[in-house]
Each structure stands twice: as structure tokens, then as C-alpha cells.
């Protein structure tokens, strides 16, 4: 686990949940947040100075609230729009994170974010461990962020 990258990942995620979803992120998880079950997964793949994938795992019923907040609605939108919201969150976190790791001049190609199927491997190369993994407490659940980098920068 790369601590420097983990800190940058947490900062990018917290900013996005706060500013896009009107949520108050916390790094200290209470038991309800810590043991919340997984509801949905989304990911965005990227290429550039580093190649890899960011996976966002939403737990404990946070996604419907997040999607409603993003759209300015009182009620959660339909599932399709919730998945869309998850993809946008992954996209924005990734877009903000990568230049902070590689430098502001570097260019990355982000693929279209997508929902992941249940049981789908988190990363296509078997046995690959995430370079950085953080948990963000949100309401009564949490978001897990797993960053997979090929040729990850050293600590």
C-alpha cells in the first residue's frame, strides 16, 4: 500500500462526495459504516503515464442518497440513474486524482465509467493487489476506493 497515493485518493474522493453529493465524508468509520454491506460497484479504466483502474464500491444504502443529492431531487432516482451517478463519481475522482500523482502537464485517457457486475474481478489481471485503498464514511454507509496502477510510483 502506497500511503502518499492513499492520501491523495482520499482527498479526491472526499472533495467529490462533499461538493457533488452534499455529504460529509469521514475517515473514522463507526461500526455501522465499517460493516455495511456492498450495494454497487463502478469503475473507470485509464491509460497514460500510469495505466490502471479506479474501483468505487458503495456500501450501506449510500448510493440512492448520493444520486438524489447530485440531481437535486428529494427521492432517489431510478436504478439506471443511480449507476450513472456512480460512474460520474468514479470519473470525477479519477480525473482529479491522476494529475496530482503524475504532474499537471501529463495527459491521461479515461475510458467511459461503467457499473461492474456482481462477482466480476476488481482488476482484470488475476492476483493484482490495489496500489492504494481507502474507505470514506458517508451517512450510515461508506465508499471503498481501490486504485490499481500498473508500474505504480514508489513510496
Amino acid at each position: 500500500m502506497n500511503d502518499k497515493i492513499a492520501k491523495a485518493l482520499y482527498r479526491a474522493a472526499a472533495l467529490t462526495f462533499e461538493e457533488l453529493g452534499f455529504m460529509f465524508p469521514s475517515s473514522d468509520l463507526d461500526p455501522l459504516q465499517k460493516y455495511a454491506s456492498v450495494d454497487a460497484l463502478g469503475c473507470v479504466d485509464f491509460e497514460g503515464p500510469y495505466t490502471g483502474r479506479l474501483v468505487v464500491r458503495m456500501c450501506g444504502g449510500v448510493l440512492p442518497v448520493l444520486a438524489a443529492n447530485m440531481m437535486g431531487e428529494l427521492e432517489p432516482p431510478e436504478q439506471r440513474l443511480q449507476r450513472d451517478a456512480l460512474g460520474e463519481v468514479a470519473n470525477i475522482i479519477c480525473g482529479n486524482l491522476l494529475p496530482s500523482l503524475a504532474g499537471a502537464k501529463e495527459v491521461f485517457q479515461l475510458k467511459t465509467p461503467r457499473a461492474m457486475a456482481a462477482g466480476e474481478p476488481l482488476f482484470p489481471v488475476p492476483g493484482t493487489k490495489p496500489t492504494a485503498e481507502v474507505q470514506v464514511g458517508l451517512e450510515e454507509g461508506r465508499a471503498d476506493l481501490l486504485l490499481f496502477l500498473i508500474d505504480a510510483p514508489q513510496e
Binding site: 479519477c94 494529475p99 499537471a104 501529463e106 495527459v107 491521461f108
Partner: peptide, 9 residues
């Protein structure tokens, strides 16, 4: 309106 953060792009 984009997530793009690269100064070059």
C-alpha cells in the same frame, strides 16, 4: 465542462 485536469489538454 470536464473532469480533465491536465494543463496540456
Amino acid at each position: 465542462v470536464s473532469t480533465e485536469s491536465s494543463e496540456t489538454r
